[in-house]
């Protein structure tokens, strides 16, 4: 009765569907406009504003920051450094998260829920707290080096206040996101298909390479995009574990905006980060189209 009513109702006609969809999109469009488009436009304006050495804006315009960024090799290196670090962190996160996600995907029942909660629970803690946790583990007198010293190591390994520490910390902090994205992308995995491969003569490692991995690529792509973007924009962990010796775009934006009070430069660098995001998204879309 109700099915018949809706089947003939306006909501089912093509035009009606489009209209409903558009209506449903209004809230997110509004949020996007107010929370994203507007600030970005504002950033663009700030990046070409003129300032005094005190940081106060004169009200005039200047493209000085853009020319500085374009011509000073420091910023090019900063960009390269940031992209490289984020890529390495993404790959490390993927490698450690993939087996966990696959294992979780294969489980069922109570254990799956318990372990899933365990995987997500780090997200309940602020990354400041987790980074301090890593300091306790990685410092010269920390857990790792104490253990190594007890085993007879003469010199402590420098695991902190350098890029190594930043990468270790970021990898762990980004793992939950990666695992969730992988799980979301594992929908095409089908145990029957793996069994079919086995009966056709594929030993387990070939089943993995020929069937499991290709079918999980959408998850890998999604997780990598998410992790890469989060790695680029993270600044607490690089700041604390880098000890002021690791320079990345996000930490530089923070320093320029809060310490040096050079807002136009901070805005310029922010826009560059945004461009990197856009490029990452474009790459992701291309990859997805290729494997889809």
């Amino acid at each position: 009765m109700s099915a018949a009513a809706t089947a003939q109702g306006p909501a089912q006609s093509p035009r009606g569907t489009t209209f409903t969809a558009a209506t449903l999109l209004v809230p997110i469009l509004l949020i996007n406009a107010i929370g994203f488009m507007l600030p970005v436009a504002n950033l663009a304006v700030i990046s070409v504003s003129e300032i005094r050495s005190s940081g106060a804006m004169t009200g005039g315009w200047s493209i000085a920051k853009w020319t500085t960024v374009a011509t000073d090799p420091f910023y090019w290196e900063l960009l390269a450094n940031t992209v490289r670090t984020s890529l390495i962190v993404t790959i490390l996160t993927l490698i450690v998260s993939y087996p966990i996600a696959l294992c979780l995907h294969r489980m069922n029942g109570a254990w799956k829920s318990i372990l899933l909660v365990l995987v997500i629970s780090p997200l309940l803690l602020s990354s400041v707290v987790r980074t301090y946790g890593w300091i306790a583990i990685l410092s010269d007198r920390g857990l790792v080096n104490s253990a190594l010293a007890a085993l007879g190591a003469q010199e402590p390994f420098r695991l902190m206040f350098n890029l190594t520490g930043v990468m270790i910390g970021l990898t762990e902090i980004l793992m939950p996101y990666m695992i969730l994205a992988l799980l979301a992308g594992f929908g095409r995995l089908d145990p029957r298909v793996e069994e079919a491969a086995a009966t056709l003569g594929a030993p387990p490692y070939r089943v993995f390479w020929r069937v499991v991995l290709p079918l999980s690529l959408p998850g890998v792509a999604l997780g990598s995009l998410l992790t890469f973007v989060l790695a680029i924009s993270s600044f607490i962990t690089p700041k604390l574990l880098g000890g002021g010796r690791v320079f990345l775009l996000a930490t530089e934006v923070y320093d320029q905006a809060i310490v040096t009070l050079d807002w136009p430069l901070a805005a310029t660098l922010s826009i560059i980060v945004l461009v990197v995001f856009g490029l990452a998204l474009a790459v992701y879309t291309r990859i997805l189209r290729q494997i889809g």
Binding site: D190, R192, E195, A196, V211, P214
Partner: peptide, 13 residues
């Protein structure tokens, strides 16, 4: 063994 599944289980990719 040649196994044919009820759900076919073809390799979708």
């Amino acid at each position: 063994m040649g196994l044919v599944f009820q759900s076919y289980a073809l390799f979708p990719h």
